[in-house]
Amino acid sequence: MLKFDYLSVEMAFIVGEHGDSSVALWSSISVGGVPILSHLERQQIAYEKETLEKIRKEVVQGAYEVISLKGYTSWAIGYSAANLARSLLRNQRKIHPVSVLAKGFFGIDGGEVFLSLPAQLGRGGVLGVTNMHLTEYEAQQLQNSAKAILEVQSQLEI
């Protein structure tokens, strides 16, 4: 059993396209500064990738559920916009998943595609994409997300 009392818990970034091919970066979660997946592996605590994928799908489906119940998701959008504005105006240099030109990052190549990636924000806007360690699986999923967007772009002749 993991105990998280009085520890700083970082939430996972959701990156890629905004929707079905989004990618949860489970490797980005840390508790008290310790990467959680590494900790689980070192302690030989089993976790299943299928369980993590089920959680990601529930997050994606959560937006559809909110829309079906109240018709829109304005609170989450408003909160996100305010959080981004705070980082920009206060020059906080915090990391946020925002849409950036993804070509050249995390093995993404083959065309100009904009995806949500963890980027540092400050008064000058996007100061840079954060060089995070992704698992092989996460990197492959992110590359698949880029391919999905590139396919749509080619169909639209963009």
Rank of each mutant, 00 (worst) to 15 (best):
L121P: 02
V60A: 07
D5P: 02
N144L: 13
A102V: 09
G32Y: 02
Q120I: 15
I95K: 06
K3V: 11
A139C: 11
L117T: 07
S30A: 12
N83F: 11
A81V: 15
V129F: 11
Q153D: 05
L25H: 01
H96Y: 08
S38Y: 02
R42H: 10
E151D: 13
S30E: 06
G19Y: 03
V100K: 07
E41K: 15
P118L: 13
L25S: 02
L121T: 03
V60I: 15
P97T: 13
S28H: 00
E112Y: 12
G16V: 06
K54Y: 03
K147L: 14
T130I: 11
S8E: 10
S28P: 01
L117W: 10
S30K: 06
Q43F: 04
I95V: 15
F4V: 15
L101E: 13
R86P: 02
G62P: 02
T51L: 10
S38T: 13
D109I: 04
E17G: 06
A76I: 12
A85H: 09
G104R: 09
A63N: 04
E48A: 13
R56T: 00
A63F: 09
N91I: 05
N91P: 06
W75N: 09
G124R: 14
Q155D: 08
H39W: 09
Q61T: 05
E41W: 07
V59N: 00
I55N: 00
G128I: 10
G62M: 06
T51A: 09
T135V: 11
A102I: 12
L121H: 04
E10H: 07
Y79W: 12
D109C: 08
I29N: 01
N131A: 15
P97C: 10
A24G: 02
G32A: 05
S30F: 01
S68W: 04
S154L: 10
E136C: 07
Q43K: 15
I29E: 00
R93N: 14
L25Q: 00
W26K: 01
V126E: 05
G128Q: 09
G122D: 07
E138H: 08
L40Q: 08
I95W: 03
T130F: 04
G33Q: 05
G125M: 10
G104S: 08
Q44T: 12
Y79D: 10
N144P: 02
V59F: 02
V66W: 04
A12Y: 05
W75L: 12
E138T: 09
S87D: 15
V98R: 03
L89I: 11
L7T: 08
L150Y: 03
E112W: 08
Q143D: 03
N91E: 12
E58M: 10
R93D: 09
Q153S: 06
D20I: 12
N83V: 06
I149N: 00
M132W: 06
E48L: 13
L150A: 14
